[in-house]
Design a protein around this nucleic acid. Structure first.
Lengths: 239, 239, 239, 239
DNA sequence: CATGAATGAGGTTTCATTCAT
DNA sequence: CATGAATGAAACCTCATTCAT
């Protein structure tokens, strides 16, 4: 891999090695031209560490690298070069796993959604009382959001056409809407339009979290949670 | 005559854009290349309209063109070339008025902010009763938002680091917070934390609007407004 | 919607070169657009010669092209476009090997320095007598300089802040200073300040060469050399 | 340092100009478009200070501004915009006095040459003894050079095609050559080739000054001068 | 599975110069 | 004498993607 380019040597020191003289090569090639990598005695070449990994692991490694970089510098500002450097693979490898840079963002979204939803539903599932379920939902959502802010942002913000935020959170809101409907059906609370209420409550929660993150409210996390819970109960006529 | 310091980047001070004596020149209008001005029948070319305009008008024209294009294709997808073509001026003229493409986006934000705030405050100012003022605020905000969605999106979405949305809306939320505080002070309603309540109410309003735009709720605009108003009143213990 | 901080330049993080999803792309060789490679008869298109070369060769080819063009038209007047055209590669390839146009000039300097120094020291090394060594140094330097004038000029003239010429020649002068000191130590000649004497002798040599090149003196190369040698000996009290 | 060809257009004269008929004026022009100048209260307009100056003064002011900027940032890196800003005039005014940016550099060269030569000849003229005249010449040249380094550099370095340095200093060297010849004619010293000796001595002086400026020699100005004088005398067989 | 040299369209920005007022 | 809005060619540099090995 005769890299004489001035670009910084990619993070991982364990180098990848290009192996051979290609057969149909131009007569010009005078030497082995192995670049600066041939640090070992060329007479006793290292038996080429295996560079391969199970596909799933490699894919995850790439996804991890991408997520970190997207978070740190934004999607558009992150080049595929940077991702592969961070993952310690060659450029082509990236395209072995993702059709495009955008495709890797979508993969990240899937990963996020799956985990986020899972966490909420698991929390809710532990309760039977409707009021408890509501509290659990709100709590899990707020915590999850606060914990994953950076990822959430990058994953849902950086896409054009900047789909309405609501749309992105469709599944999560649906979950809340069902909860609200369920509670209403059993008389736990009253609501005119479960779906729209869910939308607004979720948005309120989101906004409170954003404010907390932005440092615009002096409240700590638990106080924030308390405020959101109170807000919800009031909307649903609980308190 | 070697240079002892081997790798130091020598100060590279040449201008990057023109390397040769320009000689015969740019300003020379030799052909029909009059840019986008030639809107009239090319068979009867105008005898050289003066191309200058008062600076303010030119600036506005550029801003208008930029806003339209940003709305239609997004900020990043809009090239300065496109903007100047739409405005009917040369590329350099753009940079006469804005330091960079990004700077033009900022100018757009300023314009938007000014108008949006103005509209809300004007609507509120027409009422004295606190409840009416609240309703007016909500109504004006929702309508304003629904009317200006496209601009709003482009103007506030395309910036990194995607500052918390809440932050961007700081001024507007502040306005709502003051309103809520004012009402609370006179006993028009009760609230524990005017600021956080404002944040959440504004977010809820925003979310409802987004849902309406995204077509996720079957309600029309007035029904949406009614729902939001009801939501607000409930939160403030009014109804 | 409004953004409270009015004028702050928002971090502008989008990549500057590609704004839309690239989709089907550049690398795709769809047409005959094979760049400057198609040197063979276009009627019988080569079945896609491999375009890759060992990095070192490509780098050298680029450097050669750059040197020639810099010499012919000057650094600033040479565009990267011209360089890559001359080297028969795409624009991006240039930036694969050099971080910037300036960086390629630096690479050229390195190349020149290496060769120039080598030549002088090799010539000197063939002698043991101090006087012979001095003559050899002067001769090699003058010849080398006269032979490489064009390269020398471009390589050391085009940089700002036009570091004192002396500085650029630091290594070479150092070599001369050591020689003078060595001779003085063994009583071959006398000198008050070896370093400053080296500086002045080297400058005198340089000046004589410049005059010869500029055609300001009617002497041929050997006469010029003789004059410089005589000058030096006189300064060192040899003749 | 003088450039022998005084007024010659540096490079082929570039054609220019265009002329068009103004024709009818658009109705769009609404104001006088006075730009940012109208800083005073428009209701009580300042009675327009006269902005005009005698041509010679304005020209000098522009030249001063240009010299300072060229010195600080280099010729190419200095824009006409910067010059006019520094001189406090409008862009067009610059072109009223200089045909191009390059022309202003040439004007600067003339100014420099005139002053430098004058200073040396005046110093020499005060002596009659040949040895004193030589000393005076060297002293004045070294001092003048050390005092005017920055200007000298910018004025003689930034032009393409980087004429041999020797050529630029033609007049000054000629002056030295005549001095050496004169002394030789009267038997004050001996020399084989006055012209070449002058070249080399001047170069040595130049080199010593450069080294001093670059901080490569620990000597102060008077020590440097002493060394150069000693060097010269040795070359001419004086000491 | 993996590599990495090569591509090249596309973008932003600069600034010398003109000319109508 | 002076202005300054407008021009527009031309430069540098980026990076998503391909494909021969």
């Amino acid at each position: 891999m005769p890299n004489s380019s001035p670009k910084a040597e990619p993070t991982p020191p364990w180098p990848k090695h290009r192996k051979t003289e290609p057969g149909a090569c131009s007569g010009l090639r005078v030497g082995p031209a192995q670049g600066a990598h041939a640090q070992a005695n060329p007479c006793f070449p290292m038996p080429d560490l295996p560079r391969t990994k199970p596909a799933a692991l490699r894919r995850d490694a790439l996804l991890d690298a991408a997520e970190r970089l997207f978070r740190e510098r934004g999607f558009a500002a992150t080049s595929v070069d940077a991702i592969v450097a961070a993952a310690g693979v060659a450029k082509g490898t990236f395209y072995l796993y993702f059709k495009s840079k955008t495709a890797s963002l979508v993969a990240l979204q899937d990963r996020f959604v799956f985990q986020f939803r899972d966490a909420i539903e698991q929390a809710v599932g532990a309760h039977v009382d409707w009021s408890d379920r509501l509290d659990a939902w709100i709590t899990a959502a707020l915590n999850g959001y606060l914990d994953q802010t950076a990822v959430h942002d990058v994953v849902f913000h950086e896409v054009r056409p900047c789909a309405r935020r609501i749309k992105s959170n469709h599944l999560v809101i649906q979950s809340l809407a069902l909860l609200i409907e369920g509670g209403a059906a059993t008389g736990a609370w009253r609501t005119e339009d479960a779906r729209l209420t869910a939308v607004m409550l979720f948005s309120a929660l989101h906004g409170a979290a954003d404010a907390a993150i932005a440092g615009l409210t002096p409240l700590d996390r638990s106080a924030c949670l308390a405020a959101v819970l109170r807000f919800c109960r009031r909307v649903l006529g609980l308190a």
